[in-house]
Simulated scan of single mutants.
Amino acid sequence: MTQLLDAATTSAFVAPRRRRIGSSDLRVFPIAMSGNVFGWTADSESTIGILDEYIGAGGNFIDTADSYAAGRSEHMIGRWMRSHRNRDAMVIATKVGKSANNPGLTARAITRAVEASLERLDTGHIDLLYLHVDDDSVPFEETLLAVDELIRAGKVRYFGAANHTGNRLIEARIASAQLDVAQMVALQNHYNLVHRSEYEEGLAAVALRQNLAVMPRFALAGGFLTGKYRSRLDLMRGARARDAYPYLNRHGLRVLAALDQVAAAHNTSVATIALAWLLSKPLVVAPVVSASRPEQVESLTAAASIQLTRQQATELDRVSAR
């Protein structure tokens, strides 16, 4: 570990570069700001402060869904963009399939959901549309044709998947080729230092073959990888601690100990290093993170400027492996 620290002290910050989303022409800041708490644990004032801090750090990629706070998240993001007159500078991703008003991925549900999202976001187009669920009750052909029609109409620019298995992504790619319609460019999936196998042992190979940009969600394991939950007492004090609870074990604490060492070497936070580890992985374009208060944003966006040494990345790989 001493060698790890010595090597780290000579590493330097690098300027964040925007990364390309798959085969699209979308280029984004390497950290996506999630709107999942907007209208829920973050009120209007906090949401404005969070987004202001984010763009102040160079951010341009906002991720939301029509189901977040029953659509209030999209409303709040739309109002913020309108007040700042910055829609053209932002890349907006939203998801359809889980809302109470337009559930599922039938052609009718997708079309209605996108129209509603466009109205709430106060925009003429969605840059990246995710299929928020894998609705196997609907033939992929129907879903893909509906999305392609929205793309041809200019209401959606590109699309991707969330919560899909590797096999289902392969099915979708085959169907897209047969129908000669737009293909997915992005994948949003559960991936972080304490939840690796689901992505690395299945989805990663499919994403590579299909040139999908990977946007890890739960990138900080429900707050566990911020380092604030290290005992059962800590869990009792956290309003959203149930998301971190599964990771408070020997394995999770070993990961936090390794993160502590690397964070100290870079004079930064545990959360920053956990995100920097994700950004060091092939195909990962922008982990999706959330903040409930503006002061939390800095440690998230700082990850885009951290360059882990080879020794640090290898040690984090080793400690987090199961």
Score class of each variant (00 low, 15 high):
269 S>I: 04
260 D>E: 15
218 F>G: 03
275 L>Q: 10
268 T>M: 12
189 N>E: 14
265 A>P: 08
229 Y>R: 01
234 D>T: 03
264 A>V: 06
247 Y>R: 05
276 A>M: 05
195 H>I: 00
213 A>V: 01
272 T>G: 05
193 L>Y: 07
246 P>L: 11
202 G>Y: 02
272 T>N: 06
214 V>W: 02
251 H>N: 12
200 E>V: 07
263 A>C: 13
219 A>I: 03
203 L>W: 02
202 G>F: 06
202 G>D: 15
280 S>W: 04
189 N>M: 06
253 L>F: 11
214 V>G: 04
245 Y>L: 13
252 G>H: 04
276 A>E: 12
262 V>C: 08
211 N>W: 01
196 R>Q: 12
235 L>T: 03
237 R>A: 13
225 L>P: 03
197 S>P: 00
274 A>S: 15
216 P>C: 03
244 A>W: 00
254 R>M: 13
270 V>G: 03
235 L>M: 06
255 V>T: 14
226 T>S: 13
244 A>E: 02
238 G>Y: 04
190 H>E: 11
204 A>Q: 14
249 N>H: 09
257 A>W: 11
275 L>K: 08
243 D>C: 00
235 L>Q: 09
256 L>M: 13
232 R>D: 09
246 P>D: 12
266 H>W: 14
261 Q>T: 15
233 L>T: 12
184 M>D: 04
222 G>Q: 02
203 L>I: 13
262 V>M: 09
264 A>K: 13
221 A>Q: 00
237 R>C: 00
